[in-house]
Write a protein that binds this DNA or RNA. Structure first.
Length: 524
RNA sequence: GGCGGCGUAGCUCAGCGGUUAGAGCAGCGGCUUCAUAAGCCGCGUGUCGCUGGUUCGAUCCCAGCCGCCGCUACCA
């Protein structure tokens, strides 16, 4: 195990104020595809997700429901996990920031930064709403026309003592860091925004609040709790044992990639590395700010504003129930470019599902299996040791795999998937039509057997290539045959270098009436 | 206002100095029937946002303009 390269992946932790929506699911799937791909390629992967619970809103929401904050958080965490399970997200851990391990690690971290001299006491002055019992930003007040957006009352100017993190001291070091690590911020377009922001001016950040019971106490002054980002970002280290399991932390840190929404790149690309510098740990290696997905109206083609108050939020579970978790994964990875924004519409979803999954992949699987079972029972005798002929006329399989990998590693999932269809699956359907094994079998049963043997190959290749994207369907395809390489051990290289078939090819799929169950039943 | 991005077929996008600008989906026509009424073949005269410039040559480089969008810090 020690010689395996390790790979530590995280996603943003989510607010448990409401259930997960399609945007949060998009992020988790994108991260999961990467995690699954890296595992296949021999990395020792740790994939961390979680919920961000130390906020005043949690307390308010819990109170509204007549619950204890902790109980509320746990219930919400269960709801999140339920959705992630339905989407077959392979996270290794799920951290709740209300957990003791997070509290302990967090306190140790802030203490360290304090001792290193990067935290000082000052005071925060801003617009305070007495109804909300919290400070409002200039922007919030301005947008609401000079009043509190919640209470419609004018805020008061208020000043309160607090602790600051001396972010401004890290300006030069951050700029040097970006220069030395040009790939740190992904995608590239986000990079300029951050660099110019840091170049302009870095302001110290207020990292404490007073008068709160819920949250993490500041160890060097327990009348304060740690405020927002200084707490939330730390889940990435407390989740792997910072402050509680030194050895484990040393093994996994720094993170190879943080997957986050593009709206919070600033905190991850400027504040977070500076916090790491201040605490004397390495900064993360890469931050990937993905795009957003929007709901699109089928009739008008317009983007719909989803909001809790309007009650029109699309629940991922509705989509999963109507189609499947695999279909959900496929749609968002194929249809929405991960670095950019994308749209979801029910109509489009059904189109993509039927066209790519049911008609193309699913039907290819069905027709090949059916031909074999119809004419040869379950065994293609004499195929042991035989190598299938290459039927891909679009270019070499080697090139196809290289292209898919390149896209996968750049998180261009939509392009990776398009390549799999274009270079592996489509040619197989064409080959079947060209060779017509259903006719050939009547004249030359041996020749038809060969054709079918050749047709199994793109199914094997497709299953391997699709494993990170639609792991369940890929597994069903792969396990329908007695391929020599165990499913758990397949790698992308196996697509090109086919492990020798020691036994004659055999169908292991469940075949009621000689027909396989449809992988993706067509939706009317 | 400042910095940055985008504008390519009905839709989603690829291409980013050089033969007739490409894919998928949708649409239309034909073939086929092994298969999930699936598959295959054929069909696009698109001002590559507009106007100039650089170049032997620009969708791809530069400038200006028009239209969208992001960031411009303490809500995560």
């Amino acid at each position: 195990m020690a010689d395996k390269p390790r790979f530590f992946i995280t996603t943003a932790i989510d607010y448990p104020n409401s259930r997960p929506h399609i945007g949060t699911a998009f992020e988790k799937i994108g991260a999961d595809v990467q995690a699954r791909y890296r595992r296949m390629q021999g990395y020792d992967v740790f994939f961390l997700m979680g919920n961000d619970e130390n906020t005043i809103k949690v307390v308010k929401r819990a109170r509204e429901l007549g619950k204890e904050p902790q109980a509320y958080c746990n219930e919400m965490a269960d709801q999140f996990k339920e959705v992630w399970r339905a989407l077959n997200i392979s996270n290794d851990d799920f951290i709740q920031t209300s957990e003791p391990r997070h509290h302990a690690g967090c306190q140790q971290f802030i203490q360290k930064v304090f001792e290193n001299g990067h935290i000082y006491k000052g005071s925060y002055e801003g617009w305070y709403c007495e109804g909300c019992e919290e400070f409002k930003t200039e922007k919030q007040i301005k947008e609401a026309g000079g009043v509190c957006p919640n209470h419609n009352t004018p805020p008061v100017r208020r000043s309160e003592p607090c602790y600051y993190f001396a972010l401004s001291k890290f300006q030069d070091r951050l700029l040097r860091f970006y220069e030395d690590n040009p790939d740190f911020i992904q995608p590239e377009s986000r990079r300029n925004e951050i660099v110019s922001l840091v170049q302009t001016e870095l302001l110290d950040v207020n990292i404490t609040r007073s008068g709160q019971n819920w949250g993490i106490r500041v160890p060097f002054d327990d009348s304060y709790t740690i405020y927002v980002w200084f707490d939330a970002l730390l889940n990435y280290v407390t989740g792997i044992g910072y402050g509680t399991e030194a050895e484990r932390f040393a093994h996994w840190w720094p993170a190879d990639v943080h997957f986050i929404g593009k709206d919070i790149t600033r905190f991850h690309c400027a504040l977070w590395p500076a916090m790491c510098f201040a605490a004397g740990i390495a900064p993360p290696r890469r931050v990937f700010g993905h795009g957003f997905v929007y709901r699109k109206d089928d009739a008008s083609g317009d983007r719909i504003k989803e909001s809790k108050t309007l009650g029109n939020v699309t629940d991922p579970m509705d989509i999963i129930t109507r189609f499947s978790g695999e279909a959900f994964r496929y749609y968002f990875m194929r249809e929405c470019p991960f670095p950019g924004d994308g749209d979801f519409s029910w109509l489009r979803f059904a189109e993509v599902y039927n066209s790519d999954l049911a008609n193309n992949l699913g039907n290819l699987y069905s027709r090949v299996l059916r031909q074999i079972s119809l004419n040869y029972g379950t065994v293609l005798e004499g195929t042991a040791g035989q190598a299938p002929e290459v039927i891909n006329s679009e270019g070499s399989v080697h090139t196809a795999v290289a292209e898919v990998q390149q896209h996968l590693e750049a998180c261009q999932y939509n392009q990776a998937l398009q390549k799999i269809w274009l270079l592996i699956l489509d040619p197989a359907n064409r080959y079947a039509d060209r060779t017509e094994p259903w006719k050939l079998v009547k004249q030359d049963k041996e020749a038809a057997k060969k054709v079918l043997y050749n047709l199994v190959e793109p199914l094997r290749q497709g299953a391997i290539l699709l494993k990170p994207f639609i792991p369940r369907a890929a597994e069903v395809i792969y396990r329908s045959f007695n391929f020599s390489r165990p499913w758990e051990e397949v790698r992308y290289e196996d697509v090109v270098t086919r492990p020798a078939q020691t036994e004659p090819l055999r169908l292991l799929a469940d075949l009621p009436d000689g027909k396989p169950k449809p992988l993706f039943p067509r939706i009317a």
